[in-house]
Amino acid sequence: MAVEQSTTLSRETLLDWYYQIVLIRQFEERCDALYKDHKITGVYLHLYSGHEAVGVGALAALGTDDHVITAYRDHGIALARGVDAKPLMAEMMGKRTGVSGGKGGSMHLASRAHNFWGGYAIVGGHFPLATGIALKVRYMKEPNVVLCFMGDGATNNGYFHEAVNMAAVWDLPVIWLIENNLVGMGTRIEDSSGQPQLHKRAAAYGIKDGGRVDGQNVVEMYEAVSQAAAYAKKKGPVLLEALTYRYSGHGVSDKQYNVREDLASELKQWQDARDPINVLRGIINASYPGAEAELKALEDRADGVVEESVKFADESPVPTYEDLISNVYVGRSPLD
């Protein structure tokens, strides 16, 4: 049953999620514009537009001592985790004040202070890291959980099998959350996975199948991940699949949507019928009518935050030679 109304969640909570989703959308749209303006440079920029409710709903279910890790489509996850937009935007622009000092770029955002263990650009490479972080949690008998985001395409990489199986054998507290946007680069899930209903793979590992969730509905995401977290902490891994859609193609170099009618119309259908902002707006209106003015104010606030982040990034210095050679090793210069 689709959630269209919620009386269990407070008005403030729903408005806060609305703000976060809008903030991510605006941040991503600004990144796209900055890329076109050559303010953000390089060949990679993978936007989270369309996925916002997955990240916001899932992270709302976690505490600050829980752990988060993801792939290169990481801007929205970082924002939803509460990382300030300013150092994120600075990283996009390769500035010294960026979360990764301008060395990581958009695909490698991380914030130690937020237990956000980073975005990783080698597909699947972060799965065993999640297993390892969860191992530390169990080892130290901490009451926390690791949330590992991944794309649908990434589940066909060998890392998936090894990392998921190892976490299963050791009953580690991991939530494997697949953001199934139906396609990896240009390859559809039916063409890349023998079992396209990805959550069903849980059976093969003897772990909890958390099912398939509507990734465009932030409330459903929140509820599903809350349940998964409770289970994972007590018992062991959960595999969860969120159905979603990417609005800006694979990345900035993806021109398919300009030339392929079928993709353009699929995108339009998702935007018209299942946009996470509209879905949440509907839930808010049904649950707590009369919030229109507040929603508008939240949109303006997000706009201001993004604007401020761009100004901050713009005015920040670029890294120097010292930065180039720092942190290659712990406590040693690469020139020694």
Binding site: K95, G102, K103, S106, H108, V318, P319, Y321, P334
Partner: peptide, 16 residues
Amino acid sequence: AMDVPLPFARDIELMA
């Protein structure tokens, strides 16, 4: 190339 991993920021990438 210099004996360091390559960074994102353009200016220091080129230095390496």
